[in-house]
Design a protein around this nucleic acid. Structure first.
Lengths: 337, 337
DNA sequence: AATCGCTAGTAAAGCGCTTTACATGTTAAT
DNA sequence: ATTAACATGTAAAGCGCTTTACTAGCGATT
């Protein structure tokens, strides 16, 4: 690989001149410019980014740490982040952590060691303080999708409470009174909020939130299966289930089918996320759409703002929306007693 | 950030000693080691990877360039690559290109400029030679999933022909004779091969491959819609469709439903890929499973082998398998005439 | 004639690390 | 007593770039 000095020698100037020319920090006469350009072309010179980064302390790159890139939600988030970053001349380095604490810490450290200009952090765990600690001293961090307690950096979230509120209102409007909620991990911000939105809708309708019908565990299909089994094996199952993720909803669907019941005739179901598959399952899933692309974009914008020394909003809530498909119907006469 | 010299000063030794100690290139007495360890802990020292990489010329990182990280197929591939790379102490930098030629070239160049140790390349286009050109001089490259003509690096593919062969055999065994194939972009390796496998199965069964029933376009849902419309609007539609990707299959499903027909009663359908949603759609999709995790792992292993100066197999074909679900049934009596 | 200001650059230090080659003091062998 | 070998390090160069501070030469001004 040709180096800057090679180019300089070839063009008969000093490396300084070439460097400054390439970075638009000097005005050179046309003849000199031509010689440098010719040298670059001849030697097929490309600047060594490592060296440049070491020298300038800037990398023109962001890190995105994410629990699981194979999860379409995070994959789409990643795609949005990348798109927006590229549009602004930044690369992004994606790491997935498997949602494991050590891996998250390692990823953050490793990214810091590589001296990226900023970090977009997504997690799906509730932190025991170690993450908060690690993030505490750092600049140019933004939190996306899920909170980490005690970290005071710009945060970009979705209006979780509004989502479940809309979903529950929809179920109630269809005539349901016996509504269960299946949520993610206890104490996770999004879970708290989604529970709160659900509770508010129920309260407003004068409906009770039965403790046995609030099941908190994981945003996974497996947990959907487990929770739905509990609900459907009870003597008086709910007529509707509000699943706090589409993955949970899929699990619920499976159990409902295994019980010889049908959605939406016997049980109504609302999901959360509006993942690509939500429209494809049987029946197509009514769900709450998260503005994934907007989330990713905004996170990048905040990072860019931080780099410019600005102070973006401490917390932004992006709006969600109810997407009506075919997994919700009025409760069956039998269920209405 | 503390530097190596800071640590050295704190420990009362030379930077050389610290560096060599950290890299296990020197035997120091316990007392000295303790002093260095203490200094590192006290200053919270972490080596600057940029500097290390610039100095050693090694980055302990791979690049993975991929058309679209939001596509679950590539996302899972990426996850597998990452897992395997991490297990061997390597980071991986993922870039998605949107399947656009310029973006692919830029990504490759950019990664090269960042001096990664190796590159895993996936594409979904047929190359006009520019990619091949760009890749020609480079070492430590492996091609994954799809070929690029004229690039002589280790390649890891799936047994595409075997996949469609199995799928077609399955349909034929169920009694179908009128089978159409919807494939990806003309001239893409996987498309050629999948068509070949299909043709072989049909030939072996003495069945004709009707030109009007081989539709090549894109591996997307949209193309599935377009192609299925053509097939179903014809006077004598096929009784079975072999979709060369699950995305295509989804599009087919939609069109079949819109025509008031049912899968598998009126039309049988086989997909290709076995994406996560294949089991979730209605009806669950019979499809060809690609060993995505194995593909990612093998690509990394090949890269590691290259780095060790070994010469991995020029081309590896990973086996596919037929996953039988509920989108295939014998042709209806009517269709059998 | 001396000074100023401009053009067209350059020398050298530094980013933080690795690595080669060498140095010093001590112990063991002859 | 001398030498060799070993233990315990260190000095300095180099990775490829950027950046600060400087300079040589020239024409214009006073």
């Amino acid at each position: 690989m040709a180096t800057l000095s090679d180019v300089a020698a070839e063009a008969g100037v000093s490396p300084t001149a070439v460097s400054r020319y390439l970075n638009n920090r000097i005005d050179l006469p046309q003849a000199t410019r031509d010689r440098i350009d010719a040298a670059i072309a001849k030697l097929d010179y490309r600047p060594n980014l490592l060296a440049r980064r070491l020298s300038t302390g800037k990398s023109e790159a962001f890190a995105l740490v994410t629990p699981d890139i194979a999860n379409p939600f995070f994959a789409e988030l990643a795609a949005a982040v990348e798109r927006q970053a590229h549009a602004n001349g930044y690369s992004v380095y994606i790491t997935s952590t498997g949602g494991h604490a050590d891996a998250e810490m390692n990823a953050i450290r490793r990214m810091a060691d590589s001296h990226v200009d900023g970090l977009i952090m997504t997690t799906n765990r509730v932190d025991d303080g170690s993450l908060a600690n690690l993030l505490a001293g750092r600049e140019n961090v933004v939190l996306l999708d899920e909170d980490i307690d005690g970290v005071s950096v710009p945060r970009v979230f979705v209006d979780n409470a509004e989502g479940t509120y809309l979903a529950a209102k929809h179920l109630i409007a269809m005539g349901h009174r016996d509504i269960a909620l299946i949520g993610g991990p206890h104490r996770l911000m999004s879970v708290n909020e989604r529970l709160a939105g659900f509770t508010r809708a129920m309260d407003e309708a004068g409906l009770p939130v039965r403790p046995g019908w609030v099941l908190l565990g994981d945003y996974t299909r497996d947990y959907g299966v487990a929770a739905a089994s509990v609900l459907l094996d009870a003597v008086d199952p709910p007529t509707a289930i509000l699943a706090c993720s589409d993955y949970i909803a899929i699990g619920v669907m499976q159990v409902v089918r295994e019980h010889g019941l049908s959605i939406p005739n016997d049980i109504s179901l609302v999901g959360f996320d509006d993942m690509a598959f939500a429209a494809l399952v049987d029946p197509p899933l009514t769900t709450i759409r998260q503005p994934v692309a907007a989330m990713g974009e905004l996170a990048v914008k905040h990072l860019l703002a931080l780099l410019e020394g600005q102070t973006p909003a401490a917390e932004t809530r992006l709006p969600v929306e109810l997407v009506t498909r075919q997994s919700v119907a009025p409760p069956s006469r039998k269920a209405l007693k």
